[in-house]
Amino acid sequence: MLLTSGQISMAISSSVVFMFTFLLFLSGYVLQQQTVRSLQAIIKPQPIVVPPPSPVLAKHFGTPPGHSFYDKYLASNRPKGGWAKVAYVQLVREHLHVCNALMLFAVLDDQESMAQRVIMYPKEWDANTTPALDPRIETSRRLLRNAAKRYKVMLQPVEPMLKAGEQSTFPLAGLLSLTAYNRVVHLVPSGLVLDTSGLDHLFTLPMDSDTLGISAGRVDGAASPSVVLLKPSKDAFQTTMESLSAAKYDEEDFLSRMPLLPDLPEDQIHIVAKTSGLRLEDDSFNATAFLDSTSYVHVSDPEVLGPEFDAPRESLASVIPKRPEPKRAWQEVYERYREMRMDVCGLDLEPVPKPSKEKLAQSQQIP
């Protein structure tokens, strides 16, 4: 069968179209494969090269170097059993001091103290019926939860152990029962931790007795310590509690009978100071050096209720130091306390409670 010229022309045209279509498809397929391989190369995870760790020393102490005595001492001294066996323990019996405990632990956490942290509080605060009796309980619960969450504080509710007049109480001596620790430190409220260096050093000191106190000095006629060291043990706890239960418990009496350790003279850091002592300082006193070299400032002035209260100016005027530098240090401590109370706890200063009718009547009696 012979093909006509038109059929031959159509066949040639179809062959040309098919060939060009095939070439176009082939070029598209090749381009597509190249694109896929490029995308795979981009998406494929690259091996991670981990650099060798930097040679750093284990951090057994909270603050950076800068205090020669403590740096040299702690280079060869650690607490017995390590930092897991020592703890700062705050015993709070009233709502007023819960925020102060948080403030102390906030600084310990910020300065990376390696010691453990414990807050002991009355177990009755956990009762569901308590808020109806005391509206402050919810604030205390919130602060305790924050302590556990933000500052790695262990919360331990405690039962009353002794009678103090008509009320039951948990004595400070009860901290001797914390036998999970070889040494505990309690900071008497209210106060500010300025530098954990000296306080952490207390965990390494040898102790000849089960209790040891550090006082800011007999600046106000009292030798009661502002920092308390305890060496917990079953025997020490039983012996001490038996001696306390023989009479009504008086914590001030217990503290005043505690052996005192003087502030360490061989270093530039002072373990503890008291705001009431600033009134006795002379013109050689330097406020900046005081704030930089003191570990714990016990904010206590006999004529005012405490730094938690918004005391009237006339009351503060009677206790504030007269010399410029001690006055500046005193004002700085009180201002820091107020600011930290707001920053850490979200609390303003408490209003000064009004005197009861009985006290008001007594003050108005004519002798």
Rank of each mutant, 00 (worst) to 15 (best):
D310N: 15
E332V: 08
F290L: 15
Y334R: 14
Y296W: 12
Y334S: 00
E308F: 09
A329M: 04
D301R: 12
D283N: 05
F285L: 14
E303H: 14
V333D: 04
S295N: 10
L280A: 06
E308P: 04
R323M: 09
W330H: 14
N286M: 15
E308A: 14
R323K: 15
S315D: 10
S293K: 13
S293P: 06
V319K: 02
A311N: 05
D301S: 06
D282P: 15
T275D: 07
D310K: 10
A329L: 10
V299H: 02
Y296E: 07
P302F: 02
D283R: 08
A317T: 07
L305V: 07
E325I: 05
P321A: 01
A289K: 15
R279T: 11
I320W: 01
F309T: 01
E308R: 12
D282H: 07
P302I: 01
S315K: 03
S300H: 09
G277T: 05
G277F: 12
E303M: 12
A311L: 11
S300A: 08
R313C: 12
L291G: 12
E325M: 12
E332N: 11
F285N: 07
S315G: 00
L278K: 06
F285K: 11
E314P: 08
L316F: 08
V319A: 01
L278N: 03
A287T: 03
S276Q: 09
S293W: 04
P326F: 06
G306S: 07
L291I: 07
T288L: 06
E308G: 04
S318W: 00
P326Q: 02
S276R: 09
S300R: 13
E281A: 15
V304M: 11
L291K: 10
F309G: 03
S318H: 07
K274Q: 11
P302C: 01
P307V: 05
R279K: 15
T294Q: 09
Q331H: 05
S315R: 08
L291T: 02
D301L: 13
E314K: 13
E308W: 13
K327F: 08
D310P: 00
K327L: 09
D301H: 05
F290Q: 14
K322P: 00
E332Q: 14
A317K: 10
V299M: 14
A317I: 01
R279P: 00
A287M: 02
R323E: 01
S276I: 03
S300C: 10
D301V: 02
L291M: 15
T294W: 07
K274P: 00
K327P: 07
P321F: 03
D283A: 13
D310R: 14
P326I: 02
E332C: 11
P302A: 08
V304L: 12
E325K: 06
A329D: 01
A329C: 04
P324C: 04
E325H: 05
D283Y: 13
V304R: 01
H298Q: 05
L278E: 04
H298D: 12
E314Y: 13
S284H: 10
W330D: 12
R313Y: 09
P302H: 03
R328N: 11
F309I: 02
Y334Q: 05
P312T: 13
T294H: 07
E281T: 02
L305D: 04
L316W: 05
L278M: 02
P312N: 03
V333S: 08
